[in-house]
Write a protein that binds this DNA or RNA. Structure first.
Length: 912
RNA sequence: AGGGCCUUAGCUCAGUUGGUAGAGCGCCACCCUUACAAGGUGGAUGUCGUCGGUUCGACCCCGGCAGGCCCUACCA
């Protein structure tokens, strides 16, 4: 059962439900997330300043389609951006995440047309104006759905700046760019062969065509010569296009056809006479070596046709049916119908020589999936050759970087073979092309403001071009049109060039490349410094998620069931260098559990902080070092390492490393060891020790939620609101901890203490291991003797005896020289140059045979290591060539292994 | 055809300058120990795809091969 919880943005009371209420032992994201988000929003925490003393950091959101609903791809894309923005915001930047939505010409028009069809209407019947109004109406009603879903994810966008690609201001920039490029001659209108979607009845750009391998046939057709009885055979995968043939081409050096060059064919069914031409592009070995040429419906034939000055016959209507240029029986048929009939007719005439299976790739419309027909038609184009030059240069010079860097090569390659961009679409929903044709003089007037008369002859009989611009045209201007360009706004001055663009590799060419070209042309600078390219989300099996294959996971549902934080963490923790990632339910549950762990750690900590007095210095307050336990110094030391790891990882876009560093610190160091370790202190009798530990606990917990916040914003803010020690009203505006920023506090940590605590941990683990392997019940308390080799180890163990006893569940713990070792389990613990033998008397506790097994296993393992190590050290070349420290390290290790082995052997002997 | 990526524990994947392999999940055993069973403790598991080269030493660098994936172009 899913209950959707609408966000109430007018809510502005404190986000927490009050400090007195005890926290439940399970974290309930549904209860927390909406409340926290509304509070952030109402407090204006997402807003950036147009003018600020802080350094700017700007990310523009790739505008999702207004028709869209949030899918996993968005969830990934947005989480990355939100992590970056929250991290930078906390790091003291004037951080702007600029949101928007895209009018998505084709997609939106299709949705509304589908709606109309249900009402028995069509856009043609309605007329253009009424239809456009209807789409706007639709947009007002449903266009915000995706925005609401983004809020569920926790996106911290500056919503006041929400821009729609058809907003008035954006339209102004679109027109200015169009007119300017037109005046430069870089936008032109021309009749060329373009990709046509018969279903959309519109032109498409090359990029909107998806090639798929299709199993088809190769039809061999006999074409009789106009003179005499001779004939020649051509092979084709699209027999119906023969109706538009205007030549047959052969290779100039093909002996079979040499004599036919220059002669004419009488094209069957049409009776047209077409020439046989010679062209070196013909492959002698493919098919029959003779190619039918249809210049108006094939890209290769088009080029060949131009070379040979061939006639171009368009045989198709807008909807893909055959037009009146073909003979009667075929008129009005679809290409599929025509193909069937035509092949049958030719067969009857004895002109079908052979049909062989043949697979080839066919262009499909990326929107509708229908087969794309190459079609000769008049369209608008952007000339890209000049625009591409600086767009390549900025990447080559490193002014603009791709992350991961490997995309640079792909980008540059594409930019070097870039074709002119067909930008007109025969749709009604979009930016209408600002060009007017004069009915009197026939000339074009292109203008930013709607003209009332022809710019050439002054006639008032002018008509605006019916077409709209490719949606990607306005998207290409996004980094500056959203900041107010062409006005020189403060926002533009502050935030352009933006810092990072985050997107999937599927739209590098659709979008990224075009933004770079337009940004350089109109703002004289790159639109962003870094392009972060992430992979695509796949299902657990690694298949592409898609609605049609039914394997897509709805992020909103995931959020409802597990919380946005769990989803975000799942995505970020697996995000490695631009690789695709698989979404698995199990992994998600793991991170949901992690959120619960954090929740409970906070619950425990808050209880342990009962009676804690907030120091005057706040987050800068340091405890008396003499009151600190090694655990306190150790956890701060580890915190410092974690801050460093997270900082470095985020700086270099290694999101998974950052997320995993906090994860393992929070769970395996803070929860597993530190919280367990301080229990005896918290419940103990020494007030001074307790006070010092409480301060450390409060400080560390505060930093844990800060480090975690970009990844898991909701739960951390909720916890933060209940913390006794904090530096800000809200976590979202707190400072992100780094070793530099946090230097003062981190000075509490100590590496020596860390080493000492590691010894304690090793000792505890050794005891637990003996317990576990011998199946001693966790409830059963045992006695242990610890035999340190040196005074230093003795002191560490003495200082931490209480914690060792608690952590290992001991009845007694003696530290000192070995006494009787009969019937004892022994485990040698070695750490650096410290050594402790852990001795557990087993008399009456367990079956000695089990312990013999355990000891033998430990012994065997070490003997294997020893053999390996000896082999290496006995190799002269190793000793000669390896760095001194590596050799020395090996020698020390060897010594340690020998000691441990002799201890274990002795122990084993005693047991037997 | 050209270019790119991948192959590491049962599964999904890390492994940042070459020093002898890790995580999460799963699995086995024992535990409802007063933050958390969405938990705790302990344990098992890998000739790092294959062959060869460089090196004292290779998961890591170089080359061949096999298998999987992606992109671009084209196949009348």
């Amino acid at each position: 059962m899913l209950i959707s919880r609408p966000m109430n943005s007018s809510q502005s009371e404190l986000p927490s439900q009050g400090h007195s209420a005890a926290l439940p032992d399970r974290y309930n994201p549904q209860e927390v997330e909406g409340r926290i988000y509304s509070w952030w929003e109402s407090r204006g925490f997402f807003k950036a300043e147009d003018v600020s003393t802080k350094a700017p950091f700007c990310v523009i959101l790739p505008p999702p389609n207004v028709t869209g609903s949030l899918h996993m791809g968005h969830a990934l894309d947005h989480t990355i951006q939100d992590v970056l923005v929250r991290w930078k915001r906390m790091s003291g930047f004037n951080a702007l995440w600029l949101p928007g939505t895209d009018h998505a010409g084709i997609a939106t028009q299709s949705v509304v047309e589908r709606e109309l069809r249900k009402e028995g209407l069509s856009r043609q019947e309605m007329g253009r104006e009424a239809f456009e109004q209807r789409v706007w109406q639709w947009k007002e009603q449903y266009g915000n759905r995706i925005v609401e879903q983004m809020k569920r994810l926790g996106d911290s966008c500056d919503w006041d700046r929400l821009t729609f690609t058809l907003d008035k201001e954006v339209s102004k920039s679109v027109r200015k760019v169009f007119v300017s490029l037109y005046q430069k001659g870089w936008i032109y209108r021309g009749t060329r062969l373009i990709n046509w979607s018969p279903q959309l009845e519109s032109a498409l750009s090359d990029l909107e065509v998806e090639h798929q391998e299709v199993k088809g046939h190769l039809w061999h057709l006999r074409y009789p010569l106009a003179q005499g009885e001779a004939s020649l055979v051509v092979a084709t995968t699209r027999p119906e296009t023969m109706l538009g043939d205007t030549a047959v081409a052969v290779h100039p050096e093909d002996e079979r056809y040499k004599d036919l060059i220059g002669q004419e064919i009488e094209l069957p069914l049409t009776g047209r006479r077409i020439p046989i031409v010679a062209d070196a592009h013909v492959d002698k070995d493919f098919g029959s070596g003779a190619v039918k040429i249809t210049p108006a419906h094939d890209f290769n034939d088009y080029e060949l046709g131009q070379r040979h000055n061939l006639e171009m016959i368009n045989i198709l209507n807008r909807n893909g049916t055959l037009n009146d240029s073909v003979p009667e029986p075929y008129r009005g048929l679809t290409t599929a119908q025509a193909r069937k009939k035509l092949v049958a007719d030719l067969e009857e005439m004895g002109l079908l020589v052979e049909v062989e299976p043949h697979s080839h790739s066919v262009g499909h419309c990326s929107r509708t999936g229908c087969v794309v027909e190459p079609l000769l038609s008049e369209q608008w184009f952007v000339k890209t050759s000049e625009l591409a030059v600086p767009a390549k240069r900025v990447v080559e010079s490193g002014t603009l970087r791709f992350e991961p860097e490997s995309w640079t090569k792909t980008y540059l390659h594409w930019m070097s073979i870039i074709q002119d961009w067909c930008i007109s679409r025969q749709l009604w929903w979009g930016h209408r092309i600002p060009a007017w044709t004069c009915t009197d003089c026939g000339q074009l007037t292109v203008a930013e403001e709607d003209p009332s008369q022809c710019g050439h002859c002054g006639s008032s009989k002018i008509q605006q071009d019916e077409d709209v611009l490719d949606t990607w045209f306005s998207s290409a201007l996004w980094p500056f049109s959203t900041l107010g360009w062409p006005k020189e706004t403060e926002a533009l001055k502050t935030f352009y060039p933006t810092n990072v663009l985050v997107t999937g590799h599927d739209i590098i060419f659709f979008w990224v490349a075009r933004m770079i070209m337009m940004g350089l042309e109109f703002c004289r600078d790159v639109p962003f410094r870094t392009v972060y390219i992430h992979g695509l989300i796949r299902d657990a099996q690694g298949l592409k998620m898609s609605k049609s294959s039914g394997n897509s996971v709805d992020p909103v549902e995931v959020i409802e069931q597990n919380g946005a934080d769990a989803l975000r963490f799942t995505l970020m923790s697996q995000l490695a260098a631009g690789r695709d990632l698989k979404f698995s339910q199990q992994r998600l549950e793991g991170y949901r559990n992690f959120m619960n762990k954090i929740w409970n750690a906070a619950r425990f900590s808050l209880a342990a902080l009962e009676g804690f007095e907030v120091p005057e210095q706040g987050l800068q307050a340091l405890p008396q070092r003499s009151d600190l336990s090694v655990a306190d110094q150790w956890i701060v030391y580890k915190l410092g390492l974690t801050e460093k790891a997270v900082d470095e990882a985020l700086q270099s876009y290694r999101f998974a490393d950052a997320a995993n560093a906090v994860y393992s610190f929070a769970w395996h160091e803070f929860c597993d060891w530190y919280l367990e370790f301080i229990k005896p202190i918290i419940y103990g009798s020494s007030e001074s020790e307790k006070k010092a530990t409480q301060l450390v606990l409060a400080q560390v917990l505060n930093r844990v939620v800060r480090l975690l916040h970009p990844f898991a914003p909701f739960i951390t803010e909720e916890i933060y609101q209940k913390l006794p020690l904090k530096g800000s009203e809200a976590l979202i505006t707190e400072t992100f901890p780094t070793p530099r920023q946090d230097k003062h506090w981190l000075s509490v940590g100590s590496q020596e203490a860390a080493l000492a605590l590691d010894l304690v941990r090793e000792v505890v683990t050794a005891i637990r291991n003996i317990r576990g392997e011998n199946r001693i019940k966790p409830g059963e308390k045992i006695a242990v003797r610890l035999v340190p080799e040196r005074d230093e180890a003795q002191k560490i163990l003495g200082d931490n005896k209480g914690s060792i006893m608690t952590l290992a569940k001991l009845e007694s713990c003696e530290i000192g020289p070995a006494q009787s070792l009969a019937k004892c389990a022994l485990a040698p613990v070695v750490l650096g140059d410290l050594r402790v033998d852990v001795v557990v008397p087993l008399e009456g506790l367990v079956d000695i045979a089990e312990e013999i097994k355990r000891t033998s296993k430990a012994l065997e393992k070490r003997q294997k290591e020893l053999a390996q190590l000896q082999g290496r050290l006995n190799n002269e070349n190793f000793v000669k060539n390896a760095p001194e420290e590596v050799v020395e390290q090996g020698r020390v290790q060897l010594e340690q292994l020998r000691n441990q082995i002799s201890s274990l052997e002795a122990s084993l002997a005693r047991l037997r």
